[in-house]
Design a protein around this nucleic acid. Structure first.
Length: 563
DNA sequence: GCCGTTTTCGGCCCGACTGTTTTCAGTCG
């Protein structure tokens, strides 16, 4: 029987092979060839199974004899013997070492073959004994960096991205809710508060007989290493070793349980200063009985919101009428102009702004002026097909090292909007970086400041600059800051969004989508906006299409007049 | 490993930075 392997699985397999090759093969282009084939497979318009059946795989540019044979095998059998062989040659957790900053696949390959390093523990031992510094291409400084990096990696492995916690929590919640002795279940804790990085997952469960519920949960084996902490609490570990707490109470105590396990501690203490944990089936009932206006979970990092007399209506994903910052195959996106626009239309958007990388972003295949002409023609054609969706032509232009915007005024004036982003020289000194961004904000073509700090959660901190100076200049120049909804970025941080709003800065929620699937990052973007306490009115892309078009046109006119 | 042709080999998006080196390799974006 033919196993219908989807192209994503095939691409993942090719990527994994590429990683193994890079560990051992001195020729970097061999690994790259596999990566290239993976990207090709992903963006294939034709059905992969059909191509294999008709023997037309090798007609695809980038797929040759070797990669073609592997793809064919995966499509037909669901696996690759070549990958299996590679896996056998290395310890299973070898790629976990990539979490150590300064370690790439080349160094990991050497550490493994020369010292037998297979995980963080063996790496630490080798470094402490000074064996790493003696390796060719390594030295005392690298060894020290590795030791520091191990700590960073350890710290990161105990933490998880919110998107992971949310998915893990919701999956578990559904499984728990389907158990017959369980009446209700809700994900609480820092996941419910939508904190960007979480340490554990909490779930509140309501059951008439908690003892029976605990027995049923244990029997289902939904978690590993499950243990009873007390008569109401289970602890276990889920995927990727995430620690999960399940709190089981009777239905009349469910409201209190949800409130207390959602936290934060400061908020709960503040609540108890004003009210009591009376019997209540829902959290809303509990607030009502205490005469306290409901506080959205996202706002519960401290007790301050308890003082509000009325519940605040925060922005919701459905408030968004369109978005900007969408990449296509013209730069480093995986889907075509038309595919991305169709996705926007299917999401019910009234408008979508395309913005591929500018020429300075080599590594992301940034567009040269000639490519822009081709792309603009293609956008025009695609726009007709996706009507009534309104399409805006933009760019994600690099902020160059001196703060100038890539392309220059003549080309920038051709776009409906410009997202200015930093993609190079992250390590600049604070003052220099501040000046660099300030100068960028002075360019009248700039509409949005993209991923303002450049952070990648659990991977790297953002670059440093003087926030207030940047916020004030944004407000002064009318440059909006994007809330980048990529779950790895969530940049600008919600704490800073609050600060910037107070200084009069405008915000817009963008997916930074590199595929149709990533258009959903607008939803993670609303996590940040909600956590910052924003209402729909405070976000640019909740405005109707006419208003947005008018604003962009007026801004463009001003830029033209400015020169 | 793949491609293309000036067709069976040579090149394969680039640049800053760092640490290892004395001319370059690995990492990161």
């Amino acid at each position: 029987m033919i196993v219908a392997m989807d192209k994503w699985t095939v691409a993942r397999t090719l990527d994994e092979i590429a990683q193994y090759i890079e560990l051992s093969d001195p020729n970097p282009f061999r690994a790259r060839a596999f990566e290239k084939a993976a990207r090709k497979v992903e963006t294939l318009e034709a059905d992969l199974g059909d191509l294999v059946k008709r023997g037309e795989l090798s007609s695809v540019s980038g797929i040759g004899k070797a990669t073609g044979a592997i793809i064919e095998e995966i499509v037909n059998t669901g696996q690759s013997r070549y990958l299996d062989e590679l896996r056998e040659q290395y310890p299973p957790g070898i790629f976990d070492l990539l979490r150590v900053p300064a370690l790439g696949l080349k160094k990991i390959g050497v550490l493994f073959s020369e010292l037998g390093v297979s995980d963080l523990e063996t790496l630490e031992q080798a470094a402490r004994e000074g064996r790493v510094a003696k390796l060719k291409g390594f030295g005392a400084k690298t060894q020290q960096k590795i030791l520091e990096g191990i700590e960073v990696a350890r710290n990161r492995t105990s933490k998880h991205l919110l998107t992971f916690g949310l998915h893990a929590g919701e999956t578990l919640r559904e499984q728990l809710a389907s158990i017959d002795v369980i009446e209700d279940a809700e994900v609480t804790g820092s996941v419910r508060r939508r904190l960007e990085v979480i340490q554990n997952v909490n779930i509140a469960v309501a059951a008439r007989d908690p003892k029976k519920a605990i027995a049923a949960i244990k029997k289902r084996k939904l978690l590993d290493a499950i243990e009873e902490l007390d008569e109401n609490t289970l602890r276990g570990t889920g995927r990727e070793d995430v620690v999960v707490f399940i709190h089981i109470v009777t239905p009349e105590n469910f409201g209190s349980c949800v409130l207390v396990t959602t936290g934060s501690r400061e908020f709960v203490e503040g609540f108890l200063a004003h009210g009591k944990l009376t019997k209540a089936r829902t959290e809303h009932d509990l607030f009502e009985k205490n005469g306290i206006a409901f506080v959205e979970p996202e706002l519960r990092e401290d007790a301050a919101p308890l003082k509000k007399k009325k519940r605040v209506t925060l922005i919701q994903p459905t408030d968004l009428r369109g978005t900007f910052h969408i990449h296509t195959t013209y730069s480093d996106g995986r889907h075509s102009v038309l595919q991305m626009l169709e996705e926007a239309r299917e999401r019910g958007f009234e408008y979508a702004g395309l913005s591929d990388h500018s020429q300075a972003a080599f590594y992301a295949r940034g567009l040269k002026p000639d490519d822009l002409k081709r792309q603009h023609a293609e956008i025009d054609r695609a726009s007709e097909e996706v009507a009534p969706l309104r399409v805006f032509r933009g760019t994600e232009a690099d902020i160059l090292n001196d703060g100038a915007i890539d392309y220059g005024a003549k080309i920038l004036s051709k776009f409906d909007f410009v997202i200015a982003s930093i993609h190079s020289r992250f390590g600049m000194e604070k003052d220099e970086m501040t000046d660099r961004i300030l100068r960028a904000l002075d360019d009248p073509h700039v509409t949005f400041l993209g991923h303002a700090t450049g952070r990648k959660l659990l991977v790297r901190d953002g670059y440093t600059f003087e926030f207030d100076k940047i916020f004030d200049r944004c407000a002064e120049r009318g440059v909006m800051i994007e809330i980048n909804g990529n779950p790895y970025r969530l940049d600008l941080d919600w704490r800073h969004v609050r600060r910037a709003i107070d200084r009069g800065v405008g915000f817009s929620i963008h997916p930074d989508a590199h595929s149709t699937r990533e258009m959903s990052h607008v939803i993670s973007g609303t996590w940040v906006a909600r956590k910052a306490g924003l209402t729909a009115k405070q976000i640019f892309n909740t405005k109707p299409v006419d208003e947005v078009a008018e604003y962009l046109a007026a801004r463009r006119k001003r830029a033209l007049a400015a020169g």
